[in-house]
């Protein structure tokens, strides 16, 4: 079966104002709204569009983390994923461990594509997709803004510093999504009801033969240093004089 694996990470919602705990042991997540990582939502949307074009048959959403991740998997199922796999663990999961766990699922599911968000908006690592492609020994097309599948190949437009780069990759491959790849659909109420009946499987990392290790330990968290507010100038002349004084214009 032509299958696409999609990553779904549970993160603090992007509208939440992030605050560092006063004791510096983390950021405040108690009572804070949690959501699907926006880049993963884009990944799922792209998978759905590929399926709707008849180029894939099944979409499997994968999340790694504590029990609460099932909320985000249900959202993914409501968006249109066919089934979900929850790798349940309370351990800290570094991108390297996430990639190893995803690889085990890939070996089991044999997908034509794995689509992941280019980064999660909590740790901002931007690593898991590339690591997964390396471990899998398959192509990677990161920061995708356009994906075209034809036969056993994909042509992917990537957002790079220089502009837009186009790569052709053999399938199976890993694609990571950039912001402008698509606009994810809204979930409708009947779909939320239907999603409750879709299969959601739970596995432990040990059952996949992976024991997550933490090799990069968090020592402390700090709020960012603030820039202090400067002066307001009354007109363009004053602005010009100030900038000229600093040799900037």
């Amino acid at each position: 079966m032509k299958r696409i694996l999609v990553s779904i990470k549970r993160v603090v919602d992007y509208n939440v104002r992030i605050r560092v705990k006063p004791d510096g042991t983390g950021v405040i997540t108690d009572g804070v709204k949690m959501s699907v990582n926006p880049f993963d939502e884009i990944a799922l949307e792209e998978a759905l569009r590929i399926k709707e074009k008849g180029l894939a048959e099944e979409i499997v959403a994968v999340s790694i983390g504590p029990a609460d991740c099932q909320q985000q998997l249900r959202t993914a199922l409501a968006m249109g994923a066919d089934r979900a796999v929850h790798v349940q663990t309370d351990a800290a999961i570094e991108p390297g461990s996430a990639a190893k766990l995803m690889l085990k699922l890939i070996e089991r599911e044999q997908p034509m594509l794995a689509i992941l968000g280019k980064q999660a908006i909590d740790d901002d690592c931007n690593q898991t997709g590339q690591m997964l492609a390396a471990l899998w020994g398959r192509p990677q097309a990161t920061f995708a803004s356009k994906v075209e599948i034809s036969g056993d190949k994909a042509q992917v437009t990537r957002e790079v510093d220089a502009g837009l780069e186009v790569l052709e990759v053999d399938l199976p491959a890993v694609i990571t999504t950039d912001l402008r790849l698509n606009e994810p659909r809204y979930v409708k109420l009947p779909d939320i009801m239907k999603a409750k009946k879709k299969p959601l499987e739970t596995v432990e990392p040990s059952a996949l033969g992976v024991s997550p290790v933490e090799r990069l330990k968090a020592v402390k968290f700090d709020p960012p240093s603030q820039r202090s507010k400067g002066v307001m100038v009354k007109d363009v002349g004053e602005l010009f004089t100030a900038l000229r004084g600093k040799g900037l214009v």
Binding site: D123, K217, F221
Partner: peptide, 18 residues
Amino acid sequence: RFRRPIYAGNAIITVEVT
């Protein structure tokens, strides 16, 4: 030991590798 931004720069984490 290194410092890096997380949460779009809204927090700075200090990380240490074994």
